[in-house]
């Protein structure tokens, strides 16, 4: 009988496989519906909300990885952090591209006006721009070369999640309960790093 005990490497591979499935399948499925005009009355609004909320969920999950794996003493979990973070970035990029492609439909002057004139869009855009260097430097080789600077750079993810929470809250007309829940979740993931954050802010003072 083959042993059911998996090595850390095997467990990591297996969990990565499931993360790929869990992140890619809904994306492909939802885009298919939207393209076929099966995603509600306005597929554009639906797909923008889907990718925006998806990016936020994945970002929060990514930020849960290190505290939870410390608590569980799990290497496997920590090995998945980068993949989750990259999917958060992917969803966020789709979110912006949806706005450019399907909402303003390549009207670049409208796109730029909206980004600069509307504070909630400005904030969302800043969050995504910050995510770009984080995604690029997630490659292992670069990470090693950066040494301690890598962690300082990636501490910016705390700023990104805060901006995302404000962006969501500011974008709604009156239905503030859902964005308020996300603000709460953001405060929780930040509170898990209370000491680190107060040290970071202390340094800046």
């Amino acid at each position: 009988m083959p042993s059911l005990v998996l090595s850390v490497k095997q467990k990591t591979l297996l969990s990565k496989f499931f993360i790929h499935l869990a992140c890619l399948l809904p994306l492909v499925y939802t885009y298919n519906l939207a393209i076929a005009d099966e995603l509600g009355g306005d597929p554009v609004e639906s797909i923008i909300h889907f990718t925006g909320i998806g990016a936020f969920n994945l970002l929060l999950l990514t930020l849960c990885v290190s505290p939870v794996s410390k608590w569980l003493k799990s290497t496997v979990l920590l090995n998945n952090r980068r993949l989750l973070g990259l999917y958060a970035f992917t969803y966020a990029v789709f979110h912006v591209l949806n706005f450019l492609f399907f909402e303003v439909q390549f009207d670049f002057s409208l796109f730029i006006n909206e980004v600069f004139d509307r504070p909630y869009i400005t904030i969302g855009m800043v969050a995504i721009l910050i995510l770009i260097p984080l995604a690029v430097t997630s490659v292992n080789l670069i990470r090693k070369r950066m040494g301690r600077k890598w962690q300082s750079l990636h501490n910016l993810s705390y700023l990104v999640v805060t901006l995302a929470a404000i962006h969501f809250y500011w974008s709604v007309k009156s239905e503030i309960i859902e964005p308020s829940i996300y603000i709460g979740l953001t405060i929780i993931v930040l509170a898990l790093r209370k000491r680190k954050l107060s040290r970071l802010i202390g340094i800046q003072k």
């Binding site: 393209i35 005009d37 597929p43 554009v44 399907f102 909206e114 004139d117 500011w170």
Partner: peptide, 18 residues
């Protein structure tokens, strides 16, 4: 919080409707 200069006309057509 958003421009009123243009609008999206909801008719037939999915994501790629112009």
């Amino acid at each position: 919080r958003w421009s009123q200069a243009s609008e999206r006309r909801i008719a037939k057509g999915g994501l790629f409707a112009k």
